[in-house]
Amino acid sequence: MNEREEPRLSAREMLERLEPSLGAGRRVRAVTALVAGLAGAVFVAALWWGEPGPLPGRTQAAFALFTVICLAWAGYGGWLVRRRVPLFATDRVIAAWMGLAASVATTALAGVAAVQRGAAVPWPVLAAGGLFVAAALVLVVRAHARRAALLRRLRELGGTRER
Rank of each mutant, 00 (worst) to 15 (best):
G129A: 09
H144A: 05
R152F: 06
P122V: 03
A143W: 03
V140T: 00
Q116Y: 02
L137D: 01
L157D: 01
V125R: 10
L139M: 11
R146H: 13
W123A: 11
R142I: 03
A136Y: 00
A136E: 02
Q116N: 09
L139I: 05
G129E: 01
R117E: 12
A134G: 04
L151K: 14
V125W: 15
H144Q: 11
A120G: 05
R147V: 05
A148M: 08
V121M: 05
A145N: 07
A149K: 00
A128C: 15
R153D: 07
E156Y: 07
R153M: 11
R146S: 03
V133Q: 14
R147G: 02
R152N: 10
V140W: 00
A148R: 14
R142P: 04
R117S: 12
G118F: 00
H144N: 12
G118D: 01
R142C: 02
W123M: 12
V133S: 14
A119M: 06
L126E: 11
L154D: 15
A148N: 12
L139S: 07
R152M: 07
V138H: 14
A119V: 03
A134H: 08
G129T: 01
V121I: 05
H144S: 04
H144Y: 10
L151I: 11
A128R: 14
G118P: 01
V140G: 00
L137G: 03
A136L: 01
A120T: 05
V138C: 08
R152L: 10
Q116T: 06
A145K: 04
R152I: 04
